[in-house]
Structures are given as structure tokens and as C-alpha cells.
Amino acid sequence: MDEIDRKIVAATQAGLPLVAQPYHKVAEELGLEPEEVMQRIRSMDDTGVIRRIGVVPNHYKLGLNANGMSVWDLDDALAKDLGAKVGALDFVSHCYLRPRSLPVWPYNLFAMVHGKSRDEVEEKASVIADLLGPACRSQDILYSTRILKKTGLRIAA
């Protein structure tokens, strides 16, 4: 990423302008050619700097009020294959392997599950449990009870 890419990121990270030609508008603000802005955005999309372009729904406004961090202690030898299957479930929004921190934390797979209620989250977690089978030694679901800080991540231009 060079300086121009960073300018484009800074100008669009809060959102695209809601006009018929949003990329032209961004280009105009930055004093660039529209074609260059579009080319750079496409290239950031191709290289994974951009995960995706579209609408980002607010889970709470859609009634998805229960968000559970489901965590699983998986056999290390199978963790990558099984994690890929868990990530492919359409109700899992984030899915990672992370190190354990024994003895307090035996879990290595983290899968964020969203639902309208805790019952729904638990139902979905049981779908994951079935998928994992005996490769999973123990599990838990941690619900967030309070947001203590949320500033998001911003990069400077």
C-alpha cells in the first residue's frame, strides 16, 4: 500500500458516498482520476486489503441481540479441517484458531455465533458440536454482558 491507497482507505473507511457515482465523488475529493480510484479499489479487493464491499447490517437492529463467543477445545491435528467447516456455517461471523492458556483456558477454536436469543445461539452451537463430534473435548459459550469500550479501528491518511 502506498500513500494514495492510504488516502483512499481514509476517505472510504466510514462509508462510500450515497450518490450515483460514488467512486467519482471520492476521486474528486482526493483530487484523483476516477479511473485510478476504481483501479486501486479493485486491486485492494483482489489482494484482500478489502474484505468485501457492501452493506454492513447492525445485528442488534435486526433483532440479533444474543451474540455468543463459542469456544471449543479441538484435537490439534484436526483443528484446521474442522475449523474450516465451522467457518462455512452461515451463522458464524468470525472463526479463528488461537493458542490455549492453560489451565484457565483450554479452548483453541473461537466461533462467533449470532442469534435472536440465547436459546437460538445454543441451538446453533449444538449444530457446531454435532459437526465436531468426538474431536471436541470441551466447549463453552461466552456472552457479552456489557460493552466496556468500542472505538473501532481507524487508520490515518
Binding site: V9, T12, Q13, A14, G15, L16, L18, I41, M44, D45, G48, V49, I50, R51, R52, I53, G54, V55, V56, P57, N58, K61, L62, L153, I155
Partner: peptide, 12 residues
């Protein structure tokens, strides 16, 4: 507020 954002989602 139904959408929290519209545009590119960057991978920091």
C-alpha cells in the same frame, strides 16, 4: 441504523 456502514470493509 439498520446498516452500521455501507462501503468497503477493510482488513486492517
Amino acid at each position: 441504523g439498520v446498516l452500521s456502514r455501507f462501503g468497503p470493509m477493510y482488513n486492517a
